[in-house]
Amino acid sequence: MAIQGWHASPRRDAEVLCDGRTGEVRIPLRLMHVDTPQGDVDFVLSGSEAAVLLERLTLSVGGAR
């Protein structure tokens, strides 16, 4: 269920962090309502979750060309 007007965008002022020991990946996001920033949050994934997401994004973007 989508909430009208809300989305999250990658923060341009922060880097994605990866913990080499655990494989955890932190993606800094900015929460937005329409075009108004509402706050910042980290999207945290395990290494295996990040690998699955990368695979799906690669297939999606590759298929859109």
Rank of each mutant, 00 (worst) to 15 (best):
P10A: 00
T22G: 05
Q38D: 12
C18V: 13
L59A: 04
V41E: 08
E15I: 00
D13S: 06
G39K: 13
T58I: 04
G47T: 02
W6H: 15
D19S: 14
L17E: 14
A64C: 10
D35G: 11
V25T: 00
F43R: 05
G63N: 06
L53S: 03
D13K: 04
D35I: 13
A64Y: 13
I27A: 01
V44M: 02
D40Y: 09
F43Y: 14
S48I: 06
G23H: 00
I3P: 01
P28L: 06
A8C: 10
H7F: 07
R11V: 04
Q38M: 14
P10Q: 02
V52R: 04
A2C: 11
R65W: 09
M32I: 06
D13R: 06
D40N: 12
Q38L: 10
D13P: 00
L54R: 11
G62W: 11
G63P: 00
G5F: 09
D13L: 08
S46P: 03
P37K: 11
D13I: 05
R12F: 07
R12M: 12
Q4W: 08
A50T: 03
G63A: 07
G5Y: 09
L29H: 07
T58E: 13
A8K: 01
R26K: 14
L17C: 08
R11K: 14
D19P: 07
R30W: 01
D35W: 09
A64W: 13
M1K: 11
R26N: 12
L45F: 05
A51N: 05
L53F: 12
R30F: 03
A8R: 01
M1L: 11
V16K: 06
G63T: 01
L31W: 11
G5M: 08
L54K: 12
F43A: 14
L53V: 12
H33V: 06
R26P: 07
L53E: 05
T36K: 15
M1R: 14
V41W: 09
I27P: 01
D19N: 15
F43S: 07
P10V: 00
G20V: 09
P37A: 07
